[in-house]
Each structure stands twice: as C-alpha cells, then as structure tokens.
Design a protein around this nucleic acid. Structure first.
Length: 783
DNA sequence: GCGTTTGGGGTACCT
DNA sequence: CCCCAAACGC
C-alpha cells in the first residue's frame, strides 16, 4: 500500500471538526456496507467527501482503492474539487466519476475483452435517434408505426434491465418487430464501432460478469465503493455495483441517497433499490454500529418551509422515512398566490422580484421554478419587459449545437471512419453533390454486405456518385494525415477549415454566430488539453499498474476530447458575471438552493402533470418533485397558480394543485391578489360558488371568471400595453417620436431609413438599448 | 439538390 | 403558441 503523505489537516480531528453527530457517525463508520439517508440540505456531499479523505488519512485505504460514483458530471467535478482541496494527491489515482464515465474508462482499458474496436465512439441521444432511423429504413418499417423516440427508449429500457434481444419474451407480432429492430440496431452499432450510453453500462456489466478473474481484480482493488444519489440508480447500475462489491465481502459499500428525492423514474431510476440495498446488504435500523444513518438536520431552509416539505412528503406511503429539522427558526410562512390568469401570475411575480431586489436580495439568489418548460415563456417575457436580468437553464447545450456536432463528426471520422452516424451528418455538409439517392444506394450496399457506409463505397458501381463519395473519403484521409503531429486545437482549426465548414458558414447569412461557436470549440480544446496535461482526471487514461488488468490502451488527446464532448454536453450558457434571476425546471434545480424560490403553475394537470398520472407511481413521483421544489428555498418560498392559463395556443382553466391542500395550515400564508379587495371575491362574485380556499375548489373547475385584477388596472411594472390603441394605419413616425414596442417597451425613434410605412426604424429603448426594426413587422405604437 | 412551406405535436433530460 | 421535421416545389 502506498504511504500516506501529510495533508492540509494536522489530524483526523481537524477534518471531523464541525460535523454534527449524525454526519460524524456516517463519516467514521468502520468498514462494511452503509446506507446514508441524506435529506435535502443535510450536508450529503460533505459527508461523502469527508469520508473519502478520512479513509485515506487514517491509512485505511490507498487513494487507488477508492471508487466514488455520481450521476452527473457536475457532481463528480464538485467532489473532485473538494477532494483536491483536502488531499495533496494526484487526483488521477482516484476513480471518481459518473457511472457512464467510469464504465467508459473501464471499456477503454478492456476494449479487446469487451469486443470493441479500440477507437469506439459514443453515441449521444441525437446520434442514437438517427441510428434508429437508419435501422428502420433498412428494415422498411414506417416510423409512424415505430416512432424512433419510442424505439430508442425501448432499447435503452431493455439495456437497463440487462436484457439482450435474445432474452426478451415475444408475446405479440409487434413485440417481435421491436425485438428485431433492437437486434438490427445492435448489429449496426457493432459494425460501426459505436456504443450508446446504456451500452457503456451494460457492456461493462457483461464483461465483469463473464470474466471472474477481472472481476476479482477489481473487487480486490476497490476496497471502498461510494455511491452518490443512490435513489436514482436503475436496475443495471445496482447490479453493476453488486458485481463490483458483492454483499458479504470485506469491501465497503457506502451509498448515500434520499428516497424522497427520486425524480427520475421516467428514465429508469428505481427507488426500490434503496430498500433492496437494506435487505441485500443487511443494513437495518437498531444495529450497532448503526449502518443506516439518517441525516435529518437541515442547514438550508427556514422552519415553515421544512414543515411544508415534511407534511407534503408524508403523503407518500412507501418511504424509508425521515423528518427534516432545523435550528434556524420558523422564518416566514410559505406564501401561496392564486392569480386569475397566467399574465396576472407573472405581474405579481415581477412585483415580488422587484420588492426582493429593493430589500437587497441578489438576483441570482432568486429562482423561478416550473414543472415543464412550456411555462418559462411567460415568465421570460415578463422579466424581459420589466428589464430584469434572467437566465434560463436548459435548452441547447454547447456540444449539442449543430455546428459543433458537425465539427465533431469530422473529428470522429478521423478516429473511426466507420462511424456511420457521423458519416451521414457531414458527408454532404457542406454540400458536395451527394444527395439522397446516392446515400440510399450506399445504405443498401452497406446493408447487403453487412458493413459500414465507409466500407460500402467500394461496393458501389463505378460512376459519378461513387467518385463523389470517394472524394469525401479522400478528404477525410487527407485531413487525418495533416492532423498527425499537431496539437488538438490546431487539429480542430485545420478540420474546420479543410472540411469546408468555415467557408460554408462564412457564406451563410446567419453564420456569424456559428463561426464564433466553432472558435469556442477551438478554445475549449485548448483548455481541455492544458487541463489534461496538468493531470486532472478529465479523461480516463488511467494506467493500471496492477496485475490482472494490464493497460490495453492509452487514449490519444483527440479521442479523449471526443469522449469529453459525448459524455459531457457542456453547460448551456455558462455566462457568469452580472447577477440574474434563475429560471429552470424543478428537475434542473435538484441539488441547488436559493434565498427565494417561486414555484409557478401549481395547478392540477400541470403539476401533478396529467401525463404522469398514468404511471402507478406517477403521483408519488410528482409529489417527490414537489418536495424537491420546496426544499430548494432557504428563506422565502412562494407558490402560485393561475385560474386561466394560455398553453399550447389555447386557454385552459385549471384548479389549484392538490399538493397545496397537503401543506399544513400553520406554515402557509394564503395571499389574495393585491386588488381583490375591490369588493369582488377573488374567485369572482360567486360565479363559481363559494369556492373559497377551504372550499370545494376542484369541483369548481372550469368556469371562466372575470379577470378582476387585470381589468382593474395595469401593473406598475409594465406600461399599459394591452390598453394602448392599435397603431393607426398610416401613422407616420418621426425622429424623436416616443414609441411603444410589445417586446422592448418604451423607446424613442433615432432614425428612419427608407419610405414609410415600409421603413427600417432605429429606436433607442429605455431598457433594451438601440435596435433597428422593420416597421412592417414590429408594430411600433406612437406614444 | 436545395430552400421554403406546411403540419404535427408538445413532462421531466441526467449520461 | 412555437418548434422541428417531412414534403413540396424550383
């Protein structure tokens, strides 16, 4: 065992100082299995990292003997950062990463045993979808009857149950076809040397399963296996864990999770794994030492917020059970706001945000959460009009942008020309006169000969089409040759130029942004290369010095970078700097915390989402989602719902979410809209019966009600836009004229170009700066 | 082969 | 309402 070098902590005592008794007990558990039930905001990550440091510092394990698994790259990075600060070690020795990242690391080491080409590539979800489409085409199946998305999730679902096509039960002709598609898809992937996300896991599992000597090696090596967010593991991940560290061995399996925060059932997460773990690893209440540790001390939220969370989640019956507590005092009650319409909800939100801002709350400490992305739009436009900075999470991420995927496709072809997904993506982009007909022929040839598209070119008749395809092959070969010996950023620069991507985007009207993104890709590669040389474990290039697992491959820098791009799609917009209100789905908010949280759209049908109710555990999972939303808030939590809401182009009349009924009266303050005191009840002059807050709200659904608030007066945060007269046709604008724009608000005309009413008009907006607008499109209203 | 139009569909999106 | 994908026309 390697010696333990001195660390930044004089002694374990220093390391453990500041832990509460539960945390202390968890961190210092003697070897053996353990389940840490870590409530929201209970210091879960701290316990996990401190445990690792404690194990190493006290000489119980060498750094190489630790494996720590997380779900997201973000969590893995955070753990590494903390470990890096606490341990003066090369982090490369630690096997810390995501399930998929670690499996990938394993497969790069054991590619031969796994039956993969050394240069295998990873398919992301888009790639997988296009691969499925090709399979369907080759099998002459309509993608109406077999929706590619459905097929894709069917295949992923099978793999997560460790089921190969041969092991599936065929109970109908439809299932027969599904299984045939699955089988053809697998053959295609194998042919092309690519693996999807689920395959990384399953292939690793199968290799470990089929090779006892390899399994024994890793079991011996990893004396301590730690798993974060265990409630989100699927069947296969748990089975994988049991292979690596089976129950009844001297290995320590330390899993941390919160069954109340399991919100990924829709993609295979199995809360039941937690209960199975207690049974299979023999971890139960009332033992000494206590191997089932509950972290119930919450360091995040004020008392009333926690009361709401506890009360709500107690409605879920199948739980391991725990109750959060805090020393922070009760704080403010949770506020519930019923708005007449979605527009009113946003107006109220804007006033609240403005008030918080005046009271000194930083904007980035304010979050607006919603169940589904469709709800973000109204909030966004409201904030935009009010000139309040905001940031929306979700949406396209860096490595998912079309131009980036194109560049990566060329790079992947340099590594592995058989990668047909990449081939199809760029064979005719930029255009090279290779059309659908040619590619159809090529795909037929590939199908008939059972080879990749690249390999099928030589099987085509010698004609013009083939010449063009050959030209593409020559281009790739040429790029590959010229890339040899260059550094990564230079390779990418050359490929962007040599492939014609650069020229194509230069010619495109809106190509400027794409070119900038490609420039960013070169920068990212540069940063990646330098980071890697510093020895940070971005990439799994571990040289296994130990017997039993000889290094079968060291990954090149390009290859590592491609892996990085596939496994980590990148932030959607990492622009830090000025403070902004955070907008995101509840799913995206998991693990985050904010001083003030607004949960909008708390309505039946939206939350709980109607489509979630089909699943037997659907409502419970929705409730867990609500629990996650509530526990994001530190000091103030506001929940709102609207009676009328415009969604998907039509107005829906929703009743408040049933979850609101589950909040304890004493911890909640029901707000009425500011102007409801004008005589009419908020629900509108008895038109919906006596549906007050305590009443039979749900039964009172659907009757449209006069919009008390909107009709009274426009909110001060917004100019009276609905009430402004429509632009008189033929109204001539003049320089200096004040105008109103529905999106940019008030402004003043600076210049006019062309002849009205088809002129281009330059306007200086009060909140959004100067803009050129097309008069025919932008309905500018003179003020 | 390429660009525009029409029409379908819309829970959450980690790896 | 808004986005993406297939279908249509040049």
């Amino acid at each position: 065992m390697s010696e333990i070098r001195p660390t930044s902590f004089d002694s374990p005592d220093g390391l453990l100082r500041g832990l509460n008794p539960e945390q202390h007990a968890a961190v210092t558990l003697p070897p053996g299995p353990a389940l840490i039930l870590a409530g929201a905001g209970s210091g879960k990550t701290r316990v996990l990292t401190t445990r690792i440091v404690w194990l190493i510092q006290t000489g119980q394990v060498a750094p190489g003997g630790v494996m720590a698994v997380t779900f997201t790259n973000k969590a893995a990075r955070e753990m590494l950062t903390r470990l890096g600060a606490m341990l003066p070690l090369s982090l490369r020795q630690l096997w810390v990463g995501t399930f998929h990242g670690l499996c990938h690391r394993f497969l790069r080491l054991h590619w031969k045993t796994a039956g993969l080409p050394q240069t295998f590539q990873i398919l992301d979800m888009q790639d997988q979808l296009s691969a499925v489409k090709r399979v369907l085409k080759a099998m002459n199946l309509s993608d109406e009857q077999f929706a590619p998305r459905k097929i894709s999730s069917f295949i992923a679902g099978c793999k997560e149950e460790a089921l190969r096509p041969g092991q599936l039960e065929i109970d109908s002709p439809h299932t027969r076809t599904l299984v045939d598609i699955y089988e053809a898809y697998e053959q295609q992937c194998q042919r092309e040397g690519v693996v999807d996300f689920a395959e990384l896991m399953l292939r690793t599992y199968e290799v470990l399963h089929a090779h006892p000597e390899l399994r024994a090696h890793y079991q011996q090596r990893f004396a301590h296996v730690l798993v974060d967010e265990f409630q989100d593991t699927n069947r296969l991940q748990y089975a994988w864990l049991k292979l690596l560290a089976p129950p009844g061995t001297p290995q320590s399996v330390f899993v941390v999770g919160d069954d109340d925060q399991s919100i990924y059932g829709f993609r295979g997460a199995r809360v039941g794994n937690m209960e199975d773990f207690t049974r299979e690893y023999g971890v139960r209440d009332g033992e000494t030492p206590q191997r089932l540790v509950r972290l119930e001390q919450n360091y995040r939220s004020a008392g009333h917020i926690l009361e709401c969370a506890n009360a709500l989640i107690s409605n879920n019956t199948v739980r391991l059970g725990k109750t959060l507590r805090t020393d922070a005092g009760v704080g403010e009650p949770v506020r519930v706001m019923g708005a007449a319409s979605d527009a009113d909800e946003v107006r109220w939100l804007l006033e609240e945000v403005a008030a918080l801002q005046r009271a000194g709350t930083a904007l980035d400490q304010i979050a607006v959460l919603y169940r589904s992305n469709a709800l973000s739009r109204g909030v966004e436009s409201g904030l935009f009009n009010a000139g309040i900075a905001y940031r929306v999470y979700g949406g396209l991420r860096f490595f998912e942008r079309a131009e980036i995927k194109h560049a990566l496709a060329y790079l992947r072809l340099l590594e592995n020309p058989h990668d047909s997904s990449s081939w199809l993506r760029v064979v005719n982009f930029p255009a090279r006169g290779i059309g659908a007909r040619t590619l159809e022929q090529l795909q037929d040839a590939a199908q008939n000969n059972g080879v990749s598209l690249y390999a099928a070119v030589s099987a085509l008749p010698d004609n013009r089409s083939r010449d063009r395809l050959q030209g593409f092959i020559d281009l790739i070969d040429d790029l590959r040759q010229r890339a040899s010996g260059l550094k990564l950023p230079e390779i990418i620069q050359r490929v962007v130029e040599g492939s014609g991507l650069q020229a194509a985007y230069e010619a495109e009207r809106e190509g400027q942004e794409r070119l900038e993104n490609l420039g960013e890709l070169v920068n990212a590669a540069d940063a990646f290369e330098r980071y890697e040389q510093r020895g940070a474990p971005v990439t799994p290039v571990a040289a296994d010095g130990e017997s039993g697992a000889p290094p079968e491959a060291a990954q090149g820098t390009l290859s590592s970078f491609l892996t990085h791009a596939a496994l980590e799609a990148g932030d959607n917009q990492a622009q830090e700097g000025h403070s902004a209100v955070q907008l995101m789905t509840i799913h995206a908010a998991k693990g985050l915390e904010f001083d003030a949280v607004f949960l909008v759209g708390a309505e039946e049908g939206l939350f709980p989402h109607e489509q979630a109710l089909a699943d037997p555990d659907g409502l419970n999972e929705e409730r867990r989602l609500m629990y996650v939303a509530i526990t994001r808030a530190r000091q103030r939590l506001s929940i709102s719902h609207a009676q009328a809401r415009m969604l998907h182009g039509q107005t829906r009349y929703n009743v408040p979410s049933r979850f609101l009924d589950e909040l304890p009266e004493g911890a909640v303050k029901w707000l009425t809209p500011p102007r409801a005191a004008t005589g009419a009840s908020f629900w509108g002059r008895d038109s919906v019966g006596s549906a007050g807050w305590g009443g039979n709200r749900r039964a009172a659904a659907a009757a449209p009600v006069p919009n008390v608030w909107t009709e009274s007066q426009a909110s001060p945060t917004e100019p009276a836009r609905q009430d402004a007269p429509p632009p008189a046709s033929g109204t001539a604008l003049r320089k200096g004229q004040g105008v109103f724009h529905t999106k940019f608000g008030e402004g003043r005309v600076l210049a006019i170009e062309g002849t009205q009413p088809q002129a281009r008009v330059q306007v200086a907006f009060r909140r959004h700066g100067e803009k050129w607008l097309d008069q025919t499109l932008a309905k500018l209203q003179p003020i």
